[in-house]
Design a protein around this nucleic acid. Structure first.
Lengths: 192, 192
DNA sequence: CCCGTTTGCCTAAACCGTTTAGGTAATCCC
DNA sequence: GGGATTACCTAAACGGTTTAGGCAAACGGG
């Protein structure tokens, strides 16, 4: 019986590719097994469960994305860094929709703490260091940036912006410019 | 054989309640049937498929939320309206997590066009009329507001903000204040 | 009020994905 | 070359989905 040469890594990568093709939701132990021409039960030597498989795909995508973002950020600061940061996320979501979805899988606290999610948060804070914000404000700003990018990308992926004539790219740029403006003046703080 | 008196509406409402209890993902034709003490197959006279059930729950939640938002908005304008609008969403998500999740179900174009999603967009535009924005800017701003609220609520629900000491409510208020400030000055348009 | 129609719910059965248990054969290491 | 490990298998239970076909309750008209 010729072996397919499965390993956890190969299974996870195959799962990630499958996610991009058919959607993260549709990634199933059985479907991945079919891709390898192998019995479903055979994969259970490599992954504990369907949920385990999905979690591993999520962690993999999180790493991959963090690497790309780190690259995009190298040597940039201010509005330039903010734009590169945002574009890295948006590009990844466009190129790898399934993996990007995986990225949003709810992880339990300890798994999350050990994941590349931490690097994402660090990079966001690094960008904000280019602006002049007090401590609680910086946290608010981290949350705001996460919300905007995350929200925009989901809504765009869900087709939420395709009904209007205005180009999504223009809105994206306008939003980034606005955030930059806002952060430069220290956020809400203006009517002081 | 005593009839349970099922109708599409009762099935959908039961599905929505179940979603709030166990999560939208876990809503299944079989589970709803169990709730009625009825055979699974019986529900298929009322709902075409599992996907059809979920779509109907989504449309129901979208209507309900639009009604609440409309109420919250009545007689308000400016920062006041913006805050009430945002809080209506956040409250709904907190009170009915399953239904809020349903709200984000990917709908095909025609279903979306016939849904209460249209009212949501109209209300967002109504708020923005209180600020002085040119036409393309208004569309950008609609997208930005949608992104922020949507993104923030998802991230908060996913537990993304629970690792830091800073209170989520404070961030929320800071973000709304910031958006208000930003919109009052016309968005990105600063260095003119 | 009774008969025909509609409709609400049923049983049966096929299909698919998940998961566990236990087995066999290929490969690795000494 | 032999013993341990690894990769993959078969078998089987379980649960959700969905279709087909049936019976009985409710309903409306004569």
């Amino acid at each position: 019986m010729a072996r397919a040469g499965l390993t956890v890594e190969r299974v996870v990568v195959a799962g990630a590719e499958l996610a991009d093709q058919v959607g993260f939701e549709q990634v199933t132990v059985a479907a991945v097994a079919r891709g390898f021409g192998v019995q479903t039960a055979s994969l259970y030597s490599h992954v504990k469960s369907s949920h385990d498989l999905k979690t591993r795909i999520a962690l993999y995508a999180l790493e991959e994305l963090a690497d790309l973002v780190a690259d995009a950020l190298a040597g940039r600061a201010g509005r330039d860094a903010l734009g590169a940061f945002a574009d890295a996320y948006r590009d990844y979501a466009a190129r790898h929709p399934g993996r990007y979805d995986a990225t949003r899988l709810r992880l339990d606290a300890e798994t999350a703490a050990a994941s590349a999610g931490v690097r994402h948060a660090q990079m966001t804070r690094a960008i904000l260091r280019g602006y002049d914000l007090t401590e609680p404000e910086q946290t608010h700003a981290v949350r705001m940036l996460g919300s905007v990018f995350h929200g925009y990308i989901s809504l765009e992926a869900a087709g939420g912006f395709s009904h209007t004539a205005v180009d999504a790219r223009q809105s994206w740029d306008w939003i980034i410019d606005s955030l930059d403006t806002l952060l430069r003046q220290g956020g809400a703080r203006p009517t002081a």
